[in-house]
């Protein structure tokens, strides 16, 4: 029992930070898709955000003596802004040019790693960026001492995790309690209904894609902070994994969080099976755990797709002429 508790205390912070990352990026994508624009460019946007954020943090760290968490905050902000700007290319193609949204997103996915590596090499001489420092928060006075919750949530925690919680609450309120959220959801389901009531479909969809871009960019920096202090132009598939979270979560925030937890668990188990006795005894190869989220998504799709929960108008350019 004590052994189990120790293991949980050890594993939980890992799970939480993977979950925070997945849910932030998936939540962003939720805004894009529920406004009616498919966004499979999450991986690419994350990479751009991670690149810009990591680079900024290195510069700040080398030139200014500011507290570590402040630097993390700056990095996260720069990542979010970069992601937002980068996502505009997708928004422009998808919304204004009525292009195929899969193709323009593929272009972004293809562009980001090449650009990050090319630029990193040109600027630093190395193909990767090294953030070096550990940005975790070891202990928080008082909170870390709470039984169970202390070790799970407030030990070896990351600033980004708390930001994720904040973002989730705000996102939920915006989506379901504000006029903007109502309009955004209507654009993804029946843009002609929204249009007939004077809602500007273009504006709403731009906003949806930009929110998605900002959160994916933020997620990119979260990846650098909590998973890999060395950024080499990749985010280990977390972008596509977030897409799987969104789909498995059926485009709904609460379910999305639960799925994010599940997929984060699979991920952590695949990384540290030896630390967890029960898992070790299962003797499943790491790759199986890694595959599970994607297989789960396929199964969920196969079961639900006939009565799919996907926004009805997602992927369809809006043509006012067809009203």
């Amino acid at each position: 029992m004590i052994e189990l508790m120790n293991q949980l205390n050890f594993a939980f912070p890992y799970i939480i930070r993977a979950m925070a990352l997945l849910s932030v990026v998936a939540l962003g994508a939720l805004f894009s898709e529920r406004s009616g624009v498919v966004n499979i460019a999450l991986e690419g946007i994350m990479i751009m955000g991670a690149f810009a954020g990591a680079w900024t943090m290195i510069i700040v760290m080398n030139n200014f003596a500011i507290p570590r968490q402040w630097n993390a905050f700056i990095g996260l902000s720069v990542g979010a802004v970069t992601g937002l700007i980068f996502s505009l290319f997708h928004a422009f193609a998808a919304i204004h040019m009525k292009s195929n949204q899969i193709i323009s997103a593929t272009a972004l996915n293809f562009f980001a790693p090449a650009f990050a590596i090319f630029t990193a090499r040109a600027v630093t001489g190395d193909r990767a960026l090294n953030v070096r420092l550990d940005y975790s928060i070891r202990n928080i006075p008082i909170l870390s001492d709470i039984p169970i919750l202390g070790p799970w949530f407030f030990t070896n925690a990351y600033l980004s995790t708390f930001i994720a919680v904040f973002i989730f609450i705000v996102a939920y309120i915006v989506l379901y309690k504000t006029p903007f959220g109502l309009r955004l959801r209507s654009c993804g389901e029946n843009p002609h209904a929204a249009d007939s009531l004077g809602v500007n479909i273009y504006k709403i969809r731009y906003a949806g894609v930009m929110i998605s871009g900002a959160l994916a960019g933020l997620g990119g920096v979260m990846f650098v902070l909590s998973f890999s202090t060395r950024f080499d132009g990749a985010v280990a598939g977390f972008g596509f994994l977030s897409l799987a979270v969104l789909i498995s979560g059926q485009w709904k925030p609460i379910r999305l969080i639960l799925i994010a937890f599940l997929f984060a668990l699979f991920r952590v188990v695949s990384e540290i099976p030896d630390e967890l006795i029960g898992i070790r005894n299962l003797n499943l190869p790491q790759e199986i755990w890694r595959m599970l989220p994607f297989i789960a998504t396929l199964v969920i799709l196969a079961i639900t797709s006939k009565g799919s929960a996907a926004p009805r108008a997602v992927g369809e350019p809006f043509d006012a002429g067809k009203r």
Binding site: F89, A93, M97, K98, S99, N100, I103, S104, T106, A107, L108, F110, F111, A114, F115
Partner: peptide, 11 residues
Amino acid sequence: AVIIYFSALSL
């Protein structure tokens, strides 16, 4: 990547 992007805008 840029070529793909402009292919998306091909129409």
